[in-house]
Design a protein around this nucleic acid. Structure first.
Length: 510
RNA sequence: GGUCCGUUCGUCUAGUCAGGUUAGGACGCCAGGUUUUCAUCCUGGUAACAGGGGUUCGAAUCCCCUACGGACUACCA
């Protein structure tokens, strides 16, 4: 191909929030571009004005930014091939449609939606397997191929609404060379005369994406596989426009499937299935309905990106944790799978766990401190850091930290009945009272000293280690969970610890 | 219905292009170990070539058929 530089684009339409399939397409484009020292562009495909959703464009850009996908050229960053918003390029497309008409590769069509519908009905009833507007059916319709020149001019002059359709060849094989799927062959008779220009004066996706990709010198079109079936029409468009020699290479990504495996992941699946499908939380401006996002659910952006990269792609090694730079280094289109990948929420969680564990205590404790502040808990940052170091290994998300450590900040309000039943024997209150006495007298109140003291006491009196320690834990924590008991006691302080033990003695009844 | 694509453990997948592996890894699950507890962690285990025909000394790998799954089939992208 005749490209000096790799230039790829992510071209979403601003009809709502981007879902993770879209983010993955953006990611693969970005990875491919950076791997080859190329450019990654963001182009907004807003040729359908009726589907425009306010805020969607901002949402898309914010999502990419959160993920760490950096845009080289786009609506915000500009570039020499602008505008990067198709609605602002509107005037550009008409001339190409007309060029196509003049060359005999496209034509005006005046059929109303009702007439189109009637045509399809008619074909269906006659048992036809194909109800498309194509070489066979267009001769029965109202278009510049069936109208006389006078009739055509009359309609045009009268301002009758029309669309422009691509005139497909009768009997031709169109070979698509796809970098993921390989060679795919289509027969023109099975394709329809796609509308390339709408009656509202806007081009359709088919024309706009071809024109823009050419003008923007796009070298590779990496997009979802829902586009495979319309790609032969795009190939024809390049050919008829005289750009076939510089046609980008195509690579169609496999779909992301629902966790159930039935169908492609859609916007509705997420909150129904208990996981987000959107990178960021989204509030539907019309219904006010809120859909959860990965960011708000506590995912680290790099974990999210790593997880997404492995949906349909793999490096061919056993390494699973990749930084963004490592992904760029390892990425290649030929390691993308052909079949749809089912989304696994458990694996997503596992990824976040890995990234959370790799974070240092300082960073984590700062994040946790602000959660505590929100709860109105004024904690010493040094203590918070200590607590984080004790509990972080059991957390998947920063938001787990509170549930994992609330007993450090507040005395238990109830005690786990199962633990009471199993561990709180008759002698426990008197044993704990004894322990209170001993701890009270302990001068050097450290975790180690306290542990030594209590354990020695248990041994010397031939008590049951499990019963005593778990009862002690119950009185401090409220249940049988958490890190080393004596670390907890040390961190909440002697006074608070003794108070809790006394409260337990006073309240717990078998 | 038509067109196009796909199918390896429950899931994500390696291996397929250049036929020969005890079909590998990860998530999940199960068991054991560590632990005063719950987790984490460590060790081990479970589990797959959709089915049928070929070609071949030999097939997950090449060919054909069937089944199943998916995408597309708009003046949406």
């Amino acid at each position: 191909m005749a490209f000096e530089k790799v230039r790829v684009r992510f071209a979403p339409s601003p009809t709502g929030p981007l879902h993770i399939g879209g983010v993955r397409t953006a990611l693969f484009n970005y990875l491919f571009a950076k791997k080859h020292n190329g450019d990654f562009l963001l182009r907004i495909e807003d040729t359908d004005q009726t589907r425009y959703v306010p805020g969607a464009e901002e949402y898309i850009m914010e999502s990419l930014e959160w993920c760490g996908i950096k845009i080289d050229e786009g609506v915000q960053q500009g570039g020499e091939y602008g505008s990067y918003r198709q609605s602002e390029r509107k005037d550009l497309y008409k001339q190409y449609a007309e060029q196509l008409i003049n060359a005999g590769h496209a034509y005006y069509a005046f059929d109303t939606p009702e007439q189109l519908e009637a045509m399809r009905e008619r074909l269906k009833e006659s048992g036809s397997s194909n109800q498309q507007y194509n070489a066979e059916t267009r001769i029965d319709m109202i278009n510049s191929l069936t109208l006389s020149e006078d009739e055509l001019n009359e309609k045009l002059n009268a301002g009758e609404p029309y669309v422009i359709r691509l005139k497909l060849p009768n009997d031709e094989n169109i070979i698509l060379k796809d970098m993921v799927l390989g060679e795919i062959s289509f027969h023109s008779s099975q394709l329809d005369d796609k509308i390339i220009f709408k009656s509202d004066g806007m081009p359709t996706y088919h024309l706009a994406n071809v024109v823009d990709d050419h003008l923007m010198k796009i070298s590779h079109v990496i997009r979802g596989s829902e586009w495979v079936n319309s790609t032969p029409s795009h190939v024809l468009l390049y050919r008829y426009l005289g750009w076939e020699d510089e046609m980008p290479q195509f690579a169609h990504m496999p779909l992301i499937l629902k966790p159930s495996g039935k169908g492609k992941l859609s916007k509705r699946d997420g909150d129904k299935g208990g996981f987000p499908v959107f990178p960021l939380e989204w509030k539907n401006p019309e219904t006010q309905e809120i859909s959860s996002g990965y960011r708000e659910s506590g995912y680290q952006p790099d974990a999210f990106l790593n997880m997404l990269a492995f949906l349909g792609w793999n490096p061919g090694t056993t390494q699973e944790i990749f930084s963004e730079d490592e992904l760029i280094e390892a990425f290649s289109l030929d390691r993308i799978g052909k079949s749809g990948a089912r989304f696994d929420p458990d694996k997503a969680k596992w990824y976040n766990h890995q990234y959370l564990q790799a974070m240092d205590d300082e960073t984590l404790s700062i994040a946790f401190k602000s959660i505590l502040d929100d709860k109105g808990i004024n904690a010493d940052p040094v203590v918070v850091k200590e607590i984080v170091s004790l509990i972080k290994e059991r957390a998947d998300f920063i938001s787990d930290l509170w549930d994992l450590s609330n007993y450090f900040f507040e005395a238990p309000s109830e005690y786990d009945a199962k633990v009471i039943k199993k561990r709180w024997k008759e002698n426990i209150p008197s044993v704990l009272a004894e322990i209170i006495k001993m701890l009270k007298e302990l001068e050097d109140f450290t975790s180690e000293k306290a542990e030594e003291l209590v354990k020695n006491y248990i041994q010397e009196n031939e008590l049951n280690m499990g019963q005593v320690l778990n009862s002690l834990r119950l009185s401090i924590v409220g249940s049988a969970k958490g890190p080393s008991l004596f670390d907890i006691i040390f961190l909440i302080g002697k006074e608070e610890a003794l108070k809790r033990i006394q409260t337990a003695i006073d309240t717990i009844k078998r």
